[in-house]
């Protein structure tokens, strides 16, 4: 996909965004006419959409594979656990976001000079460090492993997650059209060259990392109020680091729809399988991850684009052959 395509106005390309917008409106109104079960499930799906889109905002854009998603999500979870009784839900989310942003900024400032697998290992290390540190602190000072979080109704959590998701979607679309987004693209395509044409790559990366972490922290703060009980293993579950990566790989990271589709598909499969067949679910997870990386480098969206491209070509070919 060429950069140009994203900028050139093409009326046919409007169909999809309009369709998505309609779906989103429907989703936003859904708690009024669906069963609570659906509202809970849709809430979970939105959480995954937020996580995978925000992961894609940094890692997908720059090629720096971060596994720190669970760390920033967990920070948000603990913000709710500590301040849940004194702040309202939107304020908790804001605070979770800000905490994650600040931590990500600091972590990014010292680590983003690491490249490739080193960076990935480091981010996974951060998750495990926070998990173990929290566990140690809880057991040493609190004498228990977990704690209770003030709870909100799942409808309330639903609406706030919905708002956060809309913001993340808009930001994902918008960021690509800014110079900041162009700078990220340059970094992904060749960081050395990017630095030498005047891009302050370190600062750009740190900022993108911190912005994406903001959404992760806010999502964590919201989800904690739905779970009522949390402990370090729940808050910093490494699955929350891996799932967004898989969702983006499966859906395709170059287009906003990719992570969106990936998140919906996997959240749904998870909902179907995880209670009765947890191992089969995780097994499928692994298999799909491997198959996607090898056979669908641009994800489902890439496959669809290819098919559409081929159909167009075939049509064009026929026109040429038949003057």
């Amino acid at each position: 996909m060429k950069l140009i395509n994203e900028y050139k106005a093409n009326p046919k390309k409007l169909i999809l965004p309009v369709l998505v917008a309609a779906l989103l409106v429907l989703l936003g109104l859904s708690p009024n006419f669906t069963k609570p079960y659906a509202t809970i499930m849709l809430g979970t799906i939105m959480m995954y959409i937020i996580l995978s889109l925000s992961w894609n905002m940094f890692s997908g854009a720059t090629g720096y594979v971060s596994l720190a998603t669970a760390a920033f999500f967990g920070v948000g979870v603990y913000v709710s656990a500590f301040f849940g009784s004194s702040l309202s839900l939107p304020l908790l989310m804001l605070m979770g976001g800000i905490f994650s942003f600040v931590i990500a900024f600091l972590v990014g400032a010292v680590t983003l000079r690491l490249r490739g697998v080193y960076f990935t290992i480091f981010t996974l290390g951060i998750v495990k460090l926070l998990e173990q540190l929290m566990l140690y602190l809880e057991i040493t000072f609190n004498k228990t492993r977990g704690r209770f979080v003030v709870s909100y109704t799942f409808t309330e959590v639903f609406y706030w997650l919905f708002i956060l998701m809309i913001l993340v979607i808009l930001l994902s679309v918008f960021i690509k059209r800014t110079r900041f987004g162009l700078a990220l693209k340059c970094i992904a395509e060749g960081e050395d060259a990017a630095m030498h044409i005047g891009i302050g790559s370190t600062m750009v990366k740190i900022l993108a990392f911190a912005i994406s972490s903001f959404a992760m922290g806010a999502a964590g703060a919201a989800m904690a109020t739905r779970w009522t009980y949390i402990d370090p293993y729940i808050a910093f579950s490494t699955n929350l680091s891996f799932l967004p990566v898989l969702m983006v790989i499966f859906g395709g990271g170059r287009h906003v729809f990719g992570p969106l589709i990936g998140a919906v598909v996997f959240a749904y499969i998870q909902e179907l399988l995880i209670t009765d067949f947890p191992y089969v679910y995780m097994l499928a997870f692994g298999v799909i991850m491997i198959v996607s990386i090898i056979f669908m480098p641009n994800g489902i969206v890439g496959v669809i684009e290819n098919i559409v491209g081929r159909i167009k070509k075939a049509k064009g070919g026929r026109k040429n052959a038949d003057p």
Partner: peptide, 26 residues
Amino acid sequence: ARTFQKAKNFPDMTVRENVLMGAVFG
């Protein structure tokens, strides 16, 4: 400004976009 011994063009951009990046950020 500098060039690299082994050309480090941005592979997923067109020639024009490559140059444009220099003009935008330089």
